[in-house]
Design a binder for these strands. Structure first.
Ligand SMILES: [Mn+2]
Ligand SMILES: [Mn+2]
Ligand SMILES: [Zn+2]
Ligand SMILES: [Zn+2]
Lengths: 135, 135
DNA sequence: TTTACAAATGATAATCGTTATCACAAATGG
DNA sequence: CCATTTGTGATAACGATTATCATTTGTAAA
Protein backbone atom coordinates (compact mmCIF):
# COMPACT_ATOMS: atom_id res chain seq x y z
CA UNK A 1 0.00 0.00 0.00
CA UNK A 2 2.95 2.36 0.37
CA UNK A 3 4.82 3.50 -2.69
CA UNK A 4 8.42 2.59 -3.30
CA UNK A 5 10.65 5.36 -4.59
CA UNK A 6 12.49 3.71 -7.44
CA UNK A 7 15.14 5.54 -9.41
CA UNK A 8 12.82 5.97 -12.38
CA UNK A 9 9.99 7.19 -10.19
CA UNK A 10 12.22 9.66 -8.42
CA UNK A 11 13.70 11.00 -11.65
CA UNK A 12 10.28 11.50 -13.24
CA UNK A 13 9.09 13.38 -10.16
CA UNK A 14 12.28 15.43 -9.98
CA UNK A 15 12.15 16.45 -13.62
CA UNK A 16 8.48 17.42 -13.40
CA UNK A 17 9.10 19.51 -10.32
CA UNK A 18 12.22 21.05 -11.81
CA UNK A 19 10.35 22.11 -14.94
CA UNK A 20 7.65 23.97 -13.04
CA UNK A 21 5.46 23.34 -16.06
CA UNK A 22 2.46 21.26 -16.99
CA UNK A 23 4.15 18.57 -19.02
CA UNK A 24 2.82 15.68 -21.07
CA UNK A 25 4.06 12.12 -20.57
CA UNK A 26 6.24 12.23 -23.65
CA UNK A 27 7.72 15.64 -22.86
CA UNK A 28 8.75 14.19 -19.53
CA UNK A 29 10.00 11.02 -21.23
CA UNK A 30 12.35 13.12 -23.38
CA UNK A 31 13.71 14.92 -20.31
CA UNK A 32 14.23 11.78 -18.23
CA UNK A 33 15.79 9.89 -21.15
CA UNK A 34 18.72 12.33 -21.11
CA UNK A 35 19.54 11.11 -17.61
CA UNK A 36 18.32 7.50 -17.84
CA UNK A 37 18.61 6.61 -21.53
CA UNK A 38 17.17 3.10 -21.07
CA UNK A 39 13.89 4.20 -19.48
CA UNK A 40 10.73 3.14 -21.28
CA UNK A 41 7.85 5.42 -22.21
CA UNK A 42 5.56 2.89 -20.54
CA UNK A 43 7.42 3.40 -17.28
CA UNK A 44 6.84 7.12 -17.51
CA UNK A 45 3.11 6.66 -18.13
CA UNK A 46 2.89 4.04 -15.42
CA UNK A 47 4.62 6.14 -12.79
CA UNK A 48 2.83 9.36 -13.63
CA UNK A 49 -0.39 7.46 -13.07
CA UNK A 50 0.86 6.03 -9.78
CA UNK A 51 2.22 9.36 -8.55
CA UNK A 52 -1.01 11.18 -9.33
CA UNK A 53 -3.04 8.37 -7.80
CA UNK A 54 -0.98 8.77 -4.64
CA UNK A 55 -1.65 12.50 -4.63
CA UNK A 56 2.01 13.42 -5.12
CA UNK A 57 1.41 15.12 -8.46
CA UNK A 58 -1.68 16.39 -10.27
CA UNK A 59 -3.25 15.13 -13.47
CA UNK A 60 -4.87 17.58 -15.90
CA UNK A 61 -7.25 16.69 -18.66
CA UNK A 62 -7.54 19.97 -20.47
CA UNK A 63 -9.85 20.42 -23.43
CA UNK A 64 -9.68 17.02 -25.12
CA UNK A 65 -5.97 16.80 -25.71
CA UNK A 66 -3.03 14.96 -24.17
CA UNK A 67 -2.99 14.62 -20.45
CA UNK A 68 -0.64 16.92 -18.61
CA UNK A 69 0.88 16.43 -15.22
CA UNK A 70 1.16 19.07 -12.56
CA UNK A 71 4.04 19.55 -10.15
CA UNK A 72 1.59 21.26 -7.78
CA UNK A 73 -1.10 19.24 -6.12
CA UNK A 74 -3.26 21.84 -4.39
CA UNK A 75 -6.58 22.60 -6.08
CA UNK A 76 -6.24 25.37 -8.58
CA UNK A 77 -7.47 26.34 -12.01
CA UNK A 78 -5.70 26.69 -15.31
CA UNK A 79 -5.49 28.78 -18.40
CA UNK A 80 -4.38 27.25 -21.67
CA UNK A 81 -3.36 28.53 -25.05
CA UNK A 82 -5.69 27.56 -27.89
CA UNK A 83 -2.76 27.82 -30.32
CA UNK A 84 0.18 25.98 -28.72
CA UNK A 85 -1.74 24.20 -25.91
CA UNK A 86 0.60 25.48 -23.25
CA UNK A 87 -0.99 25.41 -19.79
CA UNK A 88 -0.41 27.88 -16.97
CA UNK A 89 -1.82 28.25 -13.51
CA UNK A 90 -4.67 30.68 -13.09
CA UNK A 91 -4.58 32.63 -9.89
CA UNK A 92 -8.23 33.01 -9.18
CA UNK A 93 -9.91 33.29 -5.84
CA UNK A 94 -11.70 29.97 -5.45
CA UNK A 95 -13.62 31.19 -2.43
CA UNK A 96 -15.38 33.95 -4.28
CA UNK A 97 -16.20 31.72 -7.23
CA UNK A 98 -17.67 29.18 -4.86
CA UNK A 99 -20.04 31.83 -3.52
CA UNK A 100 -21.60 32.12 -6.94
CA UNK A 101 -22.96 28.61 -6.67
CA UNK A 102 -25.19 26.84 -9.17
CA UNK A 103 -28.92 26.92 -8.89
CA UNK A 104 -29.65 23.63 -10.59
CA UNK A 105 -27.44 20.62 -10.24
CA UNK A 106 -29.91 18.18 -11.83
CA UNK A 107 -29.78 15.99 -8.74
CA UNK A 108 -26.06 15.37 -9.06
CA UNK A 109 -23.96 14.81 -5.95
CA UNK A 110 -21.36 17.43 -6.76
CA UNK A 111 -17.73 16.44 -6.26
CA UNK A 112 -15.99 19.56 -7.49
CA UNK A 113 -15.44 21.72 -10.49
CA UNK A 114 -12.84 22.72 -12.95
CA UNK A 115 -12.52 26.14 -14.48
CA UNK A 116 -10.68 26.16 -17.73
CA UNK A 117 -9.89 29.51 -19.26
CA UNK A 118 -8.84 29.58 -22.88
CA UNK A 119 -6.84 32.22 -24.67
CA UNK A 120 -3.65 32.92 -26.57
CA UNK A 121 -0.40 32.98 -24.64
CA UNK A 122 1.99 35.93 -24.94
CA UNK A 123 4.41 34.04 -27.17
CA UNK A 124 1.72 33.00 -29.63
CA UNK A 125 0.38 36.55 -29.67
CA UNK A 126 3.82 37.79 -30.69
CA UNK A 127 4.14 35.15 -33.40
CA UNK A 128 0.70 36.08 -34.71
CA UNK A 129 1.35 39.78 -34.97
CA UNK A 130 4.63 39.05 -36.76
CA UNK A 131 2.75 36.96 -39.31
CA UNK A 132 0.18 39.69 -39.85
CA UNK A 133 2.88 42.23 -40.62
CA UNK A 134 4.29 39.93 -43.31
CA UNK A 135 0.99 39.85 -45.18
CA UNK B 1 -18.63 28.45 -48.32
CA UNK B 2 -22.24 27.56 -47.76
CA UNK B 3 -23.12 24.15 -46.44
CA UNK B 4 -25.25 21.73 -48.41
CA UNK B 5 -27.91 19.91 -46.43
CA UNK B 6 -27.43 16.35 -47.54
CA UNK B 7 -29.68 13.57 -46.31
CA UNK B 8 -27.01 12.23 -44.01
CA UNK B 9 -26.25 15.66 -42.63
CA UNK B 10 -29.89 16.39 -42.00
CA UNK B 11 -30.52 13.06 -40.32
CA UNK B 12 -27.53 13.44 -37.99
CA UNK B 13 -28.71 16.90 -37.02
CA UNK B 14 -32.29 15.74 -36.56
CA UNK B 15 -31.35 12.79 -34.35
CA UNK B 16 -29.06 14.92 -32.18
CA UNK B 17 -31.78 17.52 -31.70
CA UNK B 18 -34.42 14.89 -31.08
CA UNK B 19 -32.33 13.25 -28.37
CA UNK B 20 -31.87 16.47 -26.38
CA UNK B 21 -28.74 14.87 -25.01
CA UNK B 22 -25.01 15.30 -25.30
CA UNK B 23 -24.19 12.37 -27.55
CA UNK B 24 -20.93 10.92 -28.78
CA UNK B 25 -20.29 10.30 -32.47
CA UNK B 26 -20.87 6.59 -32.16
CA UNK B 27 -24.04 6.95 -30.10
CA UNK B 28 -25.36 9.13 -32.90
CA UNK B 29 -24.08 6.66 -35.50
CA UNK B 30 -26.17 3.91 -33.88
CA UNK B 31 -29.28 6.09 -33.94
CA UNK B 32 -28.88 7.22 -37.54
CA UNK B 33 -28.03 3.70 -38.75
CA UNK B 34 -31.54 2.60 -37.83
CA UNK B 35 -32.88 5.04 -40.41
CA UNK B 36 -30.01 4.99 -42.94
CA UNK B 37 -28.40 1.57 -42.52
CA UNK B 38 -25.68 2.25 -45.10
CA UNK B 39 -24.28 5.37 -43.44
CA UNK B 40 -20.62 5.26 -42.48
CA UNK B 41 -19.20 6.18 -39.09
CA UNK B 42 -16.75 8.43 -40.94
CA UNK B 43 -19.68 10.38 -42.36
CA UNK B 44 -21.02 10.93 -38.88
CA UNK B 45 -17.68 12.19 -37.60
CA UNK B 46 -17.18 14.32 -40.70
CA UNK B 47 -20.57 15.97 -40.49
CA UNK B 48 -20.51 16.54 -36.77
CA UNK B 49 -17.26 18.39 -37.33
CA UNK B 50 -18.74 20.42 -40.19
CA UNK B 51 -21.93 21.21 -38.30
CA UNK B 52 -20.07 22.37 -35.21
CA UNK B 53 -17.64 24.34 -37.35
CA UNK B 54 -20.63 26.08 -38.91
CA UNK B 55 -22.01 26.88 -35.47
CA UNK B 56 -25.12 24.76 -35.93
CA UNK B 57 -24.27 22.40 -33.10
CA UNK B 58 -21.83 22.54 -30.18
CA UNK B 59 -18.80 20.39 -29.52
CA UNK B 60 -17.86 19.41 -25.96
CA UNK B 61 -14.53 18.14 -24.84
CA UNK B 62 -15.23 17.13 -21.29
CA UNK B 63 -12.51 15.87 -19.03
CA UNK B 64 -10.33 13.91 -21.42
CA UNK B 65 -12.90 11.52 -22.79
CA UNK B 66 -14.84 11.09 -26.02
CA UNK B 67 -16.11 14.22 -27.64
CA UNK B 68 -19.80 14.90 -27.22
CA UNK B 69 -22.00 17.01 -29.42
CA UNK B 70 -24.54 19.49 -28.19
CA UNK B 71 -27.94 20.19 -29.73
CA UNK B 72 -27.78 23.64 -28.15
CA UNK B 73 -25.30 26.15 -29.41
CA UNK B 74 -25.60 29.03 -26.94
CA UNK B 75 -22.77 29.33 -24.40
CA UNK B 76 -23.50 27.34 -21.30
CA UNK B 77 -21.74 25.14 -18.81
CA UNK B 78 -22.03 21.46 -18.06
CA UNK B 79 -22.08 18.97 -15.27
CA UNK B 80 -20.94 15.41 -15.86
CA UNK B 81 -21.10 12.16 -14.01
CA UNK B 82 -17.72 10.77 -12.97
CA UNK B 83 -19.21 7.26 -13.01
CA UNK B 84 -21.17 6.94 -16.28
CA UNK B 85 -19.86 10.08 -18.04
CA UNK B 86 -23.32 11.36 -18.78
CA UNK B 87 -23.35 15.12 -19.43
CA UNK B 88 -26.11 17.57 -18.51
CA UNK B 89 -26.50 21.29 -18.85
CA UNK B 90 -25.66 23.35 -15.82
CA UNK B 91 -27.92 26.31 -15.26
CA UNK B 92 -25.53 28.78 -13.75
CA UNK B 93 -25.61 32.52 -13.99
CA UNK B 94 -22.71 33.33 -16.28
CA UNK B 95 -22.96 37.04 -15.54
CA UNK B 96 -22.26 36.64 -11.86
CA UNK B 97 -19.40 34.25 -12.44
CA UNK B 98 -17.88 36.69 -14.86
CA UNK B 99 -17.87 39.36 -12.15
CA UNK B 100 -15.49 37.24 -10.12
CA UNK B 101 -12.79 37.76 -12.69
CA UNK B 102 -9.23 36.49 -12.51
CA UNK B 103 -6.48 38.61 -11.15
CA UNK B 104 -3.64 37.12 -13.13
CA UNK B 105 -4.05 35.97 -16.69
CA UNK B 106 -0.31 35.55 -17.30
CA UNK B 107 -0.52 37.88 -20.28
CA UNK B 108 -2.98 35.66 -22.12
CA UNK B 109 -5.53 37.20 -24.48
CA UNK B 110 -8.54 35.52 -22.93
CA UNK B 111 -11.05 34.00 -25.33
CA UNK B 112 -13.48 32.48 -22.88
CA UNK B 113 -13.83 29.91 -20.22
CA UNK B 114 -15.42 26.60 -19.53
CA UNK B 115 -16.81 25.56 -16.20
CA UNK B 116 -16.98 21.82 -15.76
CA UNK B 117 -18.70 20.52 -12.67
CA UNK B 118 -18.18 16.90 -11.77
CA UNK B 119 -20.38 14.69 -9.63
CA UNK B 120 -22.48 11.55 -9.61
CA UNK B 121 -25.77 11.59 -11.47
CA UNK B 122 -29.02 10.53 -9.76
CA UNK B 123 -29.10 7.17 -11.54
CA UNK B 124 -25.55 6.28 -10.54
CA UNK B 125 -26.28 7.34 -6.97
CA UNK B 126 -29.18 4.90 -6.88
CA UNK B 127 -27.09 2.09 -8.32
CA UNK B 128 -24.39 2.78 -5.75
CA UNK B 129 -26.67 2.69 -2.73
CA UNK B 130 -28.17 -0.57 -4.00
CA UNK B 131 -24.70 -2.08 -4.20
CA UNK B 132 -23.86 -0.94 -0.67
CA UNK B 133 -26.94 -2.63 0.72
CA UNK B 134 -25.89 -5.92 -0.86
CA UNK B 135 -22.55 -5.91 0.97
C1' DT C 1 -29.56 16.69 -71.37
C1' DT C 2 -24.98 16.03 -71.99
C1' DT C 3 -20.70 17.42 -69.97
C1' DA C 4 -17.66 19.20 -66.42
C1' DC C 5 -16.53 20.09 -61.87
C1' DA C 6 -16.99 20.21 -56.97
C1' DA C 7 -18.51 18.15 -52.91
C1' DA C 8 -19.95 14.24 -50.20
C1' DT C 9 -19.99 9.42 -49.19
C1' DG C 10 -18.63 4.68 -47.67
C1' DA C 11 -15.02 1.61 -46.81
C1' DT C 12 -11.02 1.16 -44.81
C1' DA C 13 -6.18 2.27 -43.48
C1' DA C 14 -3.48 5.08 -40.63
C1' DT C 15 -2.55 7.80 -36.64
C1' DC C 16 -2.16 9.14 -31.86
C1' DG C 17 -2.19 8.79 -27.06
C1' DT C 18 -2.62 5.54 -23.85
C1' DT C 19 -3.01 0.74 -21.64
C1' DA C 20 -2.16 -4.09 -21.36
C1' DT C 21 0.85 -7.89 -21.54
C1' DC C 22 4.72 -10.44 -20.40
C1' DA C 23 9.41 -12.10 -19.70
C1' DC C 24 12.93 -10.54 -16.90
C1' DA C 25 15.15 -7.89 -13.12
C1' DA C 26 15.14 -5.64 -8.55
C1' DA C 27 13.71 -5.24 -3.88
C1' DT C 28 11.76 -7.09 0.38
C1' DG C 29 11.29 -9.98 4.21
C1' DG C 30 11.57 -13.92 6.38
C1' DC D 1 19.71 -17.73 0.82
C1' DC D 2 14.95 -18.45 -1.19
C1' DA D 3 10.15 -17.17 -2.03
C1' DT D 4 7.26 -13.53 -3.04
C1' DT D 5 5.98 -9.14 -4.32
C1' DT D 6 6.89 -5.18 -7.24
C1' DG D 7 8.80 -2.65 -11.01
C1' DT D 8 10.85 -2.47 -15.58
C1' DG D 9 11.52 -2.33 -20.70
C1' DA D 10 9.86 -3.81 -25.00
C1' DT D 11 6.22 -4.17 -27.60
C1' DA D 12 1.43 -5.41 -28.85
C1' DA D 13 -3.22 -3.95 -28.46
C1' DC D 14 -6.66 -0.60 -27.91
C1' DG D 15 -10.16 3.14 -28.69
C1' DA D 16 -11.22 7.36 -30.67
C1' DT D 17 -10.44 10.01 -34.35
C1' DT D 18 -8.66 11.43 -38.90
C1' DA D 19 -6.87 10.59 -43.56
C1' DT D 20 -7.17 8.47 -47.95
C1' DC D 21 -9.32 7.25 -52.02
C1' DA D 22 -12.38 5.25 -55.40
C1' DT D 23 -17.11 5.99 -56.32
C1' DT D 24 -21.46 8.53 -56.20
C1' DT D 25 -24.12 12.55 -56.11
C1' DG D 26 -25.34 17.37 -56.76
C1' DT D 27 -24.82 21.75 -59.29
C1' DA D 28 -24.48 24.49 -63.02
C1' DA D 29 -22.68 25.86 -67.33
C1' DA D 30 -22.49 24.77 -72.23
MN1 LIG E 1 -1.16 23.79 -12.25
MN1 LIG F 1 -25.25 21.47 -23.37
ZN1 LIG G 1 0.62 29.67 -27.12
ZN1 LIG H 1 -23.97 8.56 -13.85
Amino acid sequence: MQLRMTNQREMILRELRKSKQHLTADELYEKVKKIMPRISLATVYRNLEILSEAGIIGKLEVSGRQKRFDYEVEEHDHIYCVVCHRVDNLEIDRESIREVGWNSDKGYAVHGYRLEVAGICPECQRKRSKKEKKQ
